[in-house]
Computed example of a mutant assay.
Amino acid sequence: MSASRPVRRVDRQALQGLAHPLRVQLYDALVSEGAATASELGRRLGESSGSTSYHLRQLERHGFVETDPARGTGRERWWRATEEDLRTRGADFEDDPSAAEAYRILDTEWARSRRGRHESWRASRREWPMPWREAAGESTSHLRLDVEETAELMAEVVALMSSWAERTDGRDGDPRYRSVEVQANVFPNGRPPGVSTD
């Protein structure tokens, strides 16, 4: 097993550098699909390579992406996401309206990206070989938990995903492996405590 991936808690300055719709999409694409050039990302996202290059450099400035030294030539620069797990919490930014808005943009774009990839899988799954269709799945559970148990559950989910990330590190470029996305949302249902149902 490889060493634990570093965890980066996104601070206000880094948040401002990431909280742009195209930057979130670029970062998300590099995390979910691996290294790519600005031109390739531009084609994938419907943007010019000039625009993607500019925003990739901004992401690099804030430490979210880096050049992939194993790929590319003098004129062709390959980008990859830095090897760290990002952690953000909206509660960390609620006392600063500018930071709270930046977090809202980030959160909205990440949710849109997750939904988009899930919808793409659902639309194309009949085109995948049967072993992949049988291996993939969807599950929803409804549990009766208090706030401490909810936090404990979320921590266990994060720890499980981190252990799998460590176990599978270094598989880029091997055609036997695909990027597999695990989406886990842990949240309370219904109205917040103290909010009338009238």
Rank of each mutant, 00 (worst) to 15 (best):
D85V: 11
P97R: 06
A70K: 00
R87F: 05
E66I: 10
P175V: 10
D95Q: 14
Y54C: 01
E127V: 07
M161I: 01
F64V: 11
A111K: 02
R61C: 09
P131K: 04
D95M: 05
A70W: 02
R8P: 11
S4M: 13
V147R: 14
E156I: 09
R114W: 10
Q25G: 02
H55G: 08
S4G: 12
W121G: 00
E181V: 14
L18Q: 08
A165M: 07
S39Q: 05
L22C: 04
F64C: 07
G173Q: 05
R87D: 08
T88Y: 09
E101T: 12
V7E: 07
Q183S: 14
A123C: 06
E101N: 09
T150P: 12
M154C: 14
E181S: 12
R115W: 11
S179R: 08
T150V: 12
L15R: 01
A3G: 13
G72V: 05
F187Q: 11
E66V: 07
A111C: 14
G190I: 11
R77L: 05
E83D: 15
V10A: 00
P129S: 09
E40M: 01
S48E: 06
G34D: 10
H20K: 01
L22D: 03
G170W: 05
R144S: 15
P131R: 03
W79V: 04
A100P: 10
E156K: 15
R9W: 07
E76I: 10
P129I: 10
V186F: 04
R114M: 03
F93C: 01
E156P: 05
E83T: 12
A111T: 13
R176K: 08
A3P: 08
W132F: 04
P129Y: 08
E66W: 01
S53E: 09
G63E: 06
R178W: 04
Y103Q: 07
S48L: 11
L41C: 00
A14S: 15
R8K: 14
R171E: 13
P188W: 13
E40V: 06
V182N: 06
A99S: 03
D146V: 11
E109I: 07
E138N: 05
R191W: 15
D146Q: 07
P192Y: 07
H20Y: 13
D68M: 01
H62P: 10
V180K: 00
L45I: 01
L15T: 13
Q16G: 10
E127H: 09
D92F: 06
P188Q: 15
D92V: 06
R87G: 09
A36W: 04
G17F: 00
D169P: 08
I105C: 12
A38S: 13
R57W: 00
A36E: 08
R114K: 00
R23Q: 15
G50F: 04
L18T: 13
E84S: 03
F93P: 02
R61Q: 14
R125Q: 09
L30D: 00
R126P: 00
R61E: 15
R8M: 08
N185E: 11
E94H: 12
R114C: 00
W164M: 13
S124A: 13
S98R: 08
E83Y: 02
P131S: 06
